[in-house]
Design a protein around this nucleic acid. Structure first.
Lengths: 187, 187
DNA sequence: TGTACATCAGTGAACGCGCGTTCACTGATGTAC
DNA sequence: TGTACATCAGTGAACGCGCGTTCACTGATGTAC
């Protein structure tokens, strides 16, 4: 085996973050062990500490990564809608509230519980706070010019609430009403 | 010490559930140990298993208890508003989105992550699902007759989303917009 | 009502498992000359 | 460019701590007669 090259090591590090993000998003942080993450990244657990100081450090980084990815996806979805002369907000809402998200579930919902319990200077919570702001900014960017900032916040909260209720109570009935209301509101 | 009377034992059991509910709501289930719960209930950890088969059993019961209490409180708040000729929905929303909840934080938010990860027949998830339905029914009961059921669901989701975002991102800016929108919607 | 015995709520110590973290080691990579 | 040495990414076993659970035990409660 022996030492990996710098470039290889950096690739491995990224693989760890990606694997961890996928696992944390679907299962939460606590039930996923370091060994699970490293196995998913194709390595053994001992190597973990060459890249991260501890599990918490990885969690914070994975949280940040999840939000980055989400912002990317949201912007792509909205821009694709604009190109087709569709309303980007409708596109975002439909995308966000689709029962089977194409890549991953919403990091706002996935990391909410863990972030809520941490102190103000905890790395995970900082990543979460920044992530929420980033996602909201990406969302607000596509709001109609005439909508107040309070309306945008409310709409955003509705999306998140619907998603959380649908996913944790496993009742997809929470998905439809918002889309309906939005459509009704415009006519 | 010796054996406690049946009545005493039942009282103790209830004390355990109440203590666990308070701890789980504020800290989540995982970080709270059996010893913590029993200590809060004024007993030692060994006695726990006279009342519950395991920690999961307690978690499910505490979750159910939290929802029962929440329904009670919601109904009281709404009824008090009605008696004063106020809109019960406004009262519920204001109450639910107050920064310092008088008794406990919302069980929908507190148990969401844990409930989401469990299988369909898991006791905790059953308690959660039933609890959400119960709270929603209590809410819908006070909706204006002319509002569609989709509108009520949307409003409910907005409340929950606002609360979750405010509490996990520690940004109370999520509290105000909804109250504002509701007021605006009526005029 | 009183007595003898069985039950069982609660105690506190101990067990044992899972998992985060550490550690000695390997050998390819990076560097100095 | 080649050689000798230092570095350090990754391995896999072992450690150790926390915590859920078990267990022998105590003595008041419940019950049978």
């Amino acid at each position: 085996m022996g030492r990996s090259s710098r470039k290889q090591a950096e690739e491995n590090r990224l693989r760890i973050v990606k694997a961890a993000t996928a696992l944390f998003i679907t299962q939460g942080i606590e039930p996923v062990g370091i060994a699970d993450v490293m196995k998913a990244a194709g390595m053994t657990q001992g190597g973990f500490y060459r890249h991260f100081t501890n599990k918490d450090g990885l969690a914070a980084e994975a949280c940040g990564f999840a939000f980055e990815k989400a912002v990317e996806i949201w912007k792509r979805v909205a821009n694709e809608a604009v190109e087709k002369n569709h309303d980007p907000m409708d596109a975002l809402i439909s995308f966000y509230l689709s029962p089977k998200p194409p890549i991953m579930t919403c990091p706002m919902v996935a990391f909410a519980a863990d972030a809520a319990l941490r102190g103000a200077d905890d790395p995970l919570r900082r990543a979460y706070d920044g992530g929420v702001r980033g996602l909201f900014d990406a969302f607000a960017e596509f709001a109609q010019a005439d909508s107040s900032s309070a309306d945008v916040r409310t709409l955003f909260a509705t999306m998140v609430g619907s998603n959380m209720l649908a996913r944790s109570s496993h009742d997809e009935g929470w998905f439809a009403p918002l889309k309906q209301s939005v459509v009704a509101q415009k006519s």
